[in-house]
Simulated scan of single mutants.
Amino acid sequence: MGLTDRQQVLLDTWLPSAELVKDHSWGLIGTLVLELTQNGERYIAKAGDAADHHLAREIRAHRNWLTPWTSRGRAPQLVNADDDAKLLLTRFLPGELVEGSPAEWAPATYREAGELLAQFHQQSAVPDDTYESRENQRTLTYLGKPHRIASELAERLQAEIAGWPTAPAILVPTHGDWQPRNWLTDNGTIRVIDFGRADLRPAYTDLARLAAQQFRSNPELETAFLNGYGEDPREPDVWHRAQLREAVNTCVWAYQVGDEPFEQQGHRMIAEAIG
């Protein structure tokens, strides 16, 4: 995949003499992530393909929710964006990826990540009477797609989800993929990248991926995170529903894009969620 003609024209307008430094694209989905340089300044351009639905979320996050972080140099600064063209340009954010580095297993990382997330979540809170029903239906729809969840288990999950309550929820700005692969560390300072899943959701949803990964391996990291965050937003019943939704959606999505290790994580998450 390359840039569309419209994306290339826009990028040439925004950065007329830019040079490509590195292609950071993930490869599993149709999003280009390009590191560029112009006049000694470094930038990141993100471009979505026709099937992309992440760029709109990312642009919305940059326009509406990132000020608490960008004002402190903790998230990339927006330079330009075009919703229709699915193109975003930000300033390059320095730092080493936390995932795979010693910082991934350092409690201090998680305390700071908790503090950052609390600041993000506290920007606004809106009630939503339909969130639970929408999420239940979304997960049931996922179970109707091709996957490798055993048929008897899938039927059991469908029956349980169909019987879940649909109480009102409080939604806040969430990152949507809050984990070390989207954190940078720069001389001990934690920074945040990748807002393609940012949306209004209950606060506890941003703990789902940490709970399935790093918290599971080292409970000290969970303690440090909650000390930074200030409280535990997870009430048992809603947390169970969130974990099971996350598990099912992980299994199905990972199977669809061919990410087998992530799919296996999803199967493990289902097994642990249903006890």
Score class of each variant (00 low, 15 high):
G48P: 06
G48V: 03
D49G: 14
D49C: 11
A50N: 09
A50G: 02
A51M: 04
A51F: 04
D52Q: 10
H54Q: 15
H54P: 00
L55M: 13
L55F: 09
A56N: 07
I59L: 12
I59W: 03
R60E: 12
R60D: 13
R63K: 12
N64P: 00
W65N: 05
P68D: 08
W69T: 05
T70D: 04
T70K: 02
G73C: 01
R74N: 01
P76A: 10
Q77S: 10
V79A: 10
N80M: 11
N80E: 15
A81Y: 07
A81D: 13
D83G: 06
D84E: 15
K86C: 02
K86N: 08
L89T: 04
T90G: 11
P94Y: 07
P94V: 04
P94L: 11
P94F: 07
G95K: 01
G95C: 05
G95P: 05
E96H: 01
L97T: 07
L97R: 10
E99D: 10
E99Q: 15
G100F: 08
P102F: 02
A103F: 02
W105D: 14
W105S: 15
A106D: 01
A108K: 03
T109H: 02
T109P: 03
Y110K: 03
Y110L: 01
R111G: 08
A113R: 02
A113N: 02
L116P: 02
L117M: 13
A118N: 09
A118L: 07
A118K: 08
F120C: 01
F120N: 00
Q122H: 14
S124G: 02
P127W: 10
D128Y: 00
S133Q: 14
N136T: 00
Q137H: 11
Y142F: 15
Y142E: 12
L143M: 15
L143E: 12
K145R: 15
H147P: 06
I149P: 01
I149L: 03
I149V: 13
I149F: 07
A150G: 07
S151G: 00
S151R: 15
S151Q: 14
L153T: 14
A154Q: 12
E155T: 09
E155D: 08
R156F: 13
A159I: 01
I161D: 08
I161A: 08
A162H: 02
A162T: 14
A162F: 00
W164V: 03
P165R: 10
T166P: 00
A167F: 04
P168I: 11
P168Y: 06
A169Y: 00
A169L: 02
I170E: 09
L171Y: 09
L171W: 07
P173L: 11
P173I: 10
P173Q: 08
T174F: 03
T174H: 11
H175R: 09
H175E: 08
G176K: 09
W178E: 05
P180L: 11
R181D: 12
R181G: 05
N182D: 08
L184H: 05
N187F: 11
G188E: 06
F195I: 06
G196Y: 13
G196F: 13
G196Q: 08
